[in-house]
Amino acid sequence: MELLFALSIGALFGIALFQLLRRNFSRIALGVIILSNALNLFLLSMGAYDGEVAAYASAAGQRSDALPQALVLTAIVISLGGLAFVLALMYILSIRYNTTDSDEVDRLKH
């Protein structure tokens, strides 16, 4: 199972990177989301316990690890905020340069 997780997270990371390397803004945005998904998944899978029941104080049995879950929960919301901001920037760029091709946005230098 660990191997499968590792391979999947690696694959997600690779896909995200490939998308980030595209010239098209919308693809870069997709890459950002996939990347945050991959990282959240990694963080979640780092829990110390193989949980059988959810992390509730009332539950009997082996509970899943609550700490990484709490961290991931915050990370998800924050990445939504970050995504929205990145999208807004990309929108402004694409309107200002009349393109969605990042290679054509070249006047930011100097």
């Binding site: 590792a6 391979l7 997270i9 694959a11 990371f13 690779g14 896909i15 990694f42």
Partner: peptide
């Protein structure tokens, strides 16, 4: 990158 990340994970 995928291979490296998979190895790290």
């Amino acid at each position: 990158a995928a291979v490296v990340v998979a190895a790290i994970v």
